[in-house]
């Protein structure tokens, strides 16, 4: 029997793209938020921020914001999935002779395309603000790759949580909880400035690993810490997402299959 995974996944991806094409404004609204955060932190609060080891706060902030934007993408994946589950359209997909995995694969491809687009837009905003990478184009591309890898891991956490939550009301709880988790990292300030144990958590936050790694790759300040986590940021920036994927990918797939129980 023909394997329809690719064809069906592409059909499902097109579905997501058609949604976005119908609401072009939404992408800009989605972008407005991280851009606003960058502006607030760079210009309102940035004056009072001191980068550990010296350097311009803007150069410290932009890579962190890129990591945060990728991580917060978890939310949009989760919302999209709960909406599908609650609208019954998933029932029709499941009663069709299509590849069952296409629903989730299509969702993830669509979200990744959107994330890549917003990542490039954020990079553009950073460049306009005077942020630069200093270690060459190849390293910069690798940094973008690490950011997308983080997004990919968050995406599967989002799919899993979306299926566990099931209801849009529970999505709100996640939307609130994601804030302290986002801030308990070195995205806006270095972990050393936090109380000891909190700083340790922040340092081991997957978002911090990616932020530190991309700062290093971009040649931006803020990566020259001395702890193990800080000196192995590039390793952690790969290991964390891969570990999260290894856990949440199978969980999400199992949960999806479990819809028939």
């Amino acid at each position: 029997m023909t394997n329809w995974v690719l064809t069906d996944s592409w059909t499902m991806t097109r579905r997501g793209l058609a949604h976005r094409a119908r609401r072009p404004g939404q992408m800009f609204v989605g972008l407005a938020f991280p851009v606003m955060m960058v502006l607030i932190f760079a210009y309102f609060l940035g004056g009072g921020m001191r980068v550990a080891g010296g350097g311009d706060y803007k150069d410290f902030l932009i890579p962190g914001m890129l990591a945060l934007t990728m991580a917060f993408g978890l939310e949009s994946t989760m919302v999209a999935l709960t909406q599908d589950l609650n609208r019954g359209v998933i029932d029709r997909f499941r009663a069709m002779p299509m590849a069952p995995s296409a629903v989730l694969v299509g969702r993830s491809v669509d979200d990744m395309l959107e994330s890549a687009a917003s990542l490039l837009a954020m990079v553009g905003v950073g460049l306009l603000m005077g942020w630069r990478w200093h270690n060459g184009f190849g390293e910069a591309l690798y940094a973008l790759g690490l950011l997308l890898l983080l997004r990919f891991a968050m995406l599967w956490i989002g799919i899993y949580l979306g299926m566990v939550a099931g209801k849009p009301e529970l999505v709100q709880a996640v939307q609130i909880l994601i804030w302290p988790i986002g801030f308990l990292s070195n995205v806006f300030t270095s972990a050393e400035s936090m109380p000891g144990w909190l700083g340790a958590i922040a340092e081991w936050n997957p978002m911090s690993a990616t932020a530190t790694a991309v700062r290093e790759l971009f040649g931006n300040p803020g990566w020259n810490g001395t702890t193990w986590a800080a000196t192995h940021a590039q390793l952690l920036a790969v290991a964390w997402p891969v570990a999260l994927l290894a856990v949440f990918g199978p969980l999400a797939v199992r949960r999806y299959r479990g819809l028939s129980h």
Partner: peptide
């Protein structure tokens, strides 16, 4: 088979 469930199984955005 075809299935017409209790709730519309359609993509509301399209």
């Amino acid at each position: 088979i075809g299935l017409l469930g209790q709730h519309a199984a359609l993509d509301e955005e399209l």
